[in-house]
Design a protein around this nucleic acid. Sequence first.
DNA 1: TCCTACATTGGACTTTGTCTAAGTCAAGAT
DNA 2: ATCTTGACTTAGACAAAGTCCAATGTAGGA
Lengths: 137, 137
Amino acid sequence: MSDLLDRLRERGWRLTAQRRVVAEVLNGDHVHYTADEVHAHASARLPEIARATVYNTLSELVAIGEVIEVSTDGRAKRYDPNVRHSHQHLVCSRCGTIRDVHPQGDPLSALPEDERYGFTISDATVTYRGICPNCAS
Amino acid sequence: MSDLLDRLRERGWRLTAQRRVVAEVLNGDHVHYTADEVHAHASARLPEIARATVYNTLSELVAIGEVIEVSTDGRAKRYDPNVRHSHQHLVCSRCGTIRDVHPQGDPLSALPEDERYGFTISDATVTYRGICPNCAS
DNA sequence: TCCTACATTGGACTTTGTCTAAGTCAAGAT
DNA sequence: ATCTTGACTTAGACAAAGTCCAATGTAGGA
Ligand SMILES: [Mn+2]
Ligand SMILES: [Mn+2]
Ligand SMILES: [Zn+2]
Ligand SMILES: [Zn+2]
């Protein structure tokens, strides 16, 4: 569970107070915050941080590959610091809770050649949906 | 390739001029329009149709299961009249073109029991991403 | 310490979608 | 054929999520 902040320091990323708190918010397992949630958490530590800065920082983290953008529904995108192991997501249809999952096998190999339409395919993302134990009870 | 309009008539759906043109727009293979695109196409036939009516109609079509809502990116949702055969999507990362695909096997069986976190899983959607032949050349 | 290229800010703006109150109409009943 | 009525449509206000910009601030190298 290498810390996002550590990874950024190693890269020699220009480190401002704002970028630091954003990186600190994006830490832990199964973390999938929206930009607004990141802003809310960051504001607790650095009240004057601007919404635009959170968006800027998240976009840059995604661009350099240190954070993944996840859109599980048609709502706000979520930001995921778990880039170490490629993974997929399991989402509760009711409350929106998200868990990281690691399905076996390669979904890409399940797609027949005659259905590739000449595309150069680079990636397959899988989203599992269901009801979490909390919402079921 | 049963026509969406036919399916709606069979259901005894209240048929207005507005609903008719929306259903006519959502016809064909690999059709995945955004609400705005549906509105644009519908306006060509019925200029006074309101944006809200398009949204209302699409929501109802989704609710009764005659159209599927697809969100491949974090942008606008897309509406898909192909509900006959369950399918997945192949998306061009550059131009956004979408093709229907039918991968082999059940992605659900690839998810180990110990990674289900007590969820009752009902569905798995797969999105393949790559560059289409048009964008590659 | 100074400089400056890069980061931050607040607010306007855009895109996508929802909501409501008032007007219209499809289709069953007479 | 006309009436009736609940369902449908409309315009525009509103909301959520995200982008853009010109002015201002600052991290980090010289
Ligand atoms: Mn994740
Ligand atoms: Mn489709
Ligand atoms: Zn839940
Ligand atoms: Zn393309």
